[in-house]
Nucleic acid binder design. Sequence first.
DNA 1: CTCCTAATCAACCAGTTGGTTGAACAGGAG
DNA 2: CTCCTGTTCAACCAACTGGTTGATTAGGAG
Lengths: 121, 121
Amino acid sequence: MTDQLSRVFAALADPTRRDIVARLSAGDATVGELAAPYDVSVQAVSKHLKVLSDAGLVSQTKDAQRRPCHLEAEVFDLMTKWIERYRRQAEERFSRLDAVLAAMDDDQPNRTRPRAQGAAS
Amino acid sequence: MTDQLSRVFAALADPTRRDIVARLSAGDATVGELAAPYDVSVQAVSKHLKVLSDAGLVSQTKDAQRRPCHLEAEVFDLMTKWIERYRRQAEERFSRLDAVLAAMDDDQPNRTRPRAQGAAS
DNA sequence: CTCCTAATCAACCAGTTGGTTGAACAGGAG
DNA sequence: CTCCTGTTCAACCAACTGGTTGATTAGGAG
């Protein structure tokens, strides 16, 4: 799982990590602050933050002993782009199919419909 | 990992599964057709399809022995909504911080700035 | 009916994941 | 210096993942 997109999706597949992202979207926070609401160890949260930061979703800076965490929102674009590409493609296919079916109905109302496979590349 | 959002993110964390989604966005396909390009067994691809269909990303119908797979694009909205929510929130926070910094500059041009953490983009 | 094809089920294996505990490190505070 | 705080490192464990092979089911073709 070497590529960033995989790391980003994998990072967000965990509810605790999504929750951490949600809280960081409201403002930076230290590891301890982030760990407080959960009944898992600070070490576990530290691991979650490592996963998030390996995915490029979070960055950490130094402030004495503290490591304030900051959300890197740009990485979201990577996902959004990927998602939008295929959603748009799928939707276009639907409308094309609809058009074809409509044309066929106009043309020969009683013909059986083809399987919706024709647009495969 | 019970909730659907987790299942969707986890499903897309695998490059092979993302590739399958990409191909299905161009048109429906059978398990065998989907397995052909990869050098893994058909069983492995069948497992990938189970993961995708458990996530609600893919549905399978029956056509004799064949199981044509179809992409369910609506599930993408679930992700997009989640992503957009927190990205927007984070971006609003940035602009608010920018406003604060601007106000400070107007007020006392020579004061040292707080750590420029928020505006880093 | 028998044979072939498409797909899934079942058992197994190596590697990863999310958690634990205990030790270590870095940096103020007394 | 010593102590306390915040965080990470290291080793370990149970559960899950992505892959394999072999058996099984479902359905058309001869």
